[in-house]
């Protein structure tokens, strides 16, 4: 099972936490016997999982902070429109409410409708679709103020996979780069781009590559937005 490949990090953690069955544990032990890289990784996790910093605990305000961020995030998702209450405008108000309800309903039908798996940066296995047969490579086009951006997208229609590699992303404070996947039917999926030293790598699996119309990224408030609010940084056209 693991003779040639390294042990996934999650499996090593489960091995140390005792969450692995006897047969899998034997396989892991056998692999560890000859694999220095996995031995080092195991040793790191042994250290991390054995630390007891009970005297340091997250503060009570932590949860409030997270709740606040979620509220802010959802506030952006459900922008409320204020209806000014003038007596003569009752009919118009009702019509507006109906229209807003209809447009919000249709909008959310178009957002994040697909299920796919993502691996980010270090989680991406060394061998991906880049060298697989039938993989198409497309260069990322940087937009106006983001000329330093450079990267490629690899898509494999047979495997329904996409690998995105982009570098030259300037470090942002209190903002994130957000990826927008626009499909032929104009529905949209969006993900935060995980950046490491100005670079991002994301591998998507079980994604409708055939349905891709366009990819683009924008600068958004930290945590991302439900709809694009910031400037484009790069685009990839599929048509």
């Amino acid at each position: 099972m693991m003779k040639s490949k390294h042990i996934p990090e999650e499996q090593l953690v489960d091995y140390l936490l005792g969450n692995i069955g006897e047969w899998d544990a034997k396989q892991i032990k056998a692999h560890l016997y000859h694999c220095k890289k996995c031995q080092y990784l195991l040793s790191d996790w042994q250290f991390l999982l054995s630390q007891d910093h009970k005297k340091f605990q997250p503060s009570q305000s932590m949860k409030d902070r997270i709740q606040h961020s979620i509220n802010q995030m959802e506030g952006k998702s459900f922008k409320r429109r204020t209806v000014i209450g003038k007596p003569g405008l009752l009919f118009a108000t009702i019509a507006c409410v109906f229209l807003i309800f209809y447009s919000v309903h249709s909008y959310y039908q178009d957002i994040n409708t697909r299920n796919y798996e993502i691996a980010e940066n270090d989680e991406i296995p060394p061998e991906t679709i880049q060298s697989a047969p039938h993989t198409q490579q497309i260069k990322v086009t940087p937009v106006s103020e983001f000329n330093q951006i450079n990267g490629y997208v690899w898509v494999n229609r047979n495997r329904n996979e996409m690998l995105l590699e982009v570098d030259g992303l300037e470090e942002l404070i209190n903002q994130d780069y957000q990826l927008w996947i626009i499909y032929m039917d104009n529905s949209i999926d969006h993900e935060i781009l995980p950046t490491q030293n100005g670079m991002t790598r994301m591998l998507f699996r079980d994604i409708d590559v055939d349905e891709f119309k366009k990819l683009k990224a924008s600068v958004e408030p930290r945590g991302g937005s439900i709809e694009q609010t910031g400037p484009d940084t790069f685009i990839v056209e599929f048509q």
Partner: peptide, 28 residues
């Protein structure tokens, strides 16, 4: 912790039972 839990809230569907336990997912 803030970033991890916010990510959990936004991307809970990314957890895959096949890859390991929830603890292992969170740890990595």
């Amino acid at each position: 912790c803030h970033d991890v839990f916010l990510e959990v809230y936004q991307k809970a569907r990314q957890y895959s039972e096949e890859k390991g336990s929830i603890k292992a997912w969170l740890a990595v």
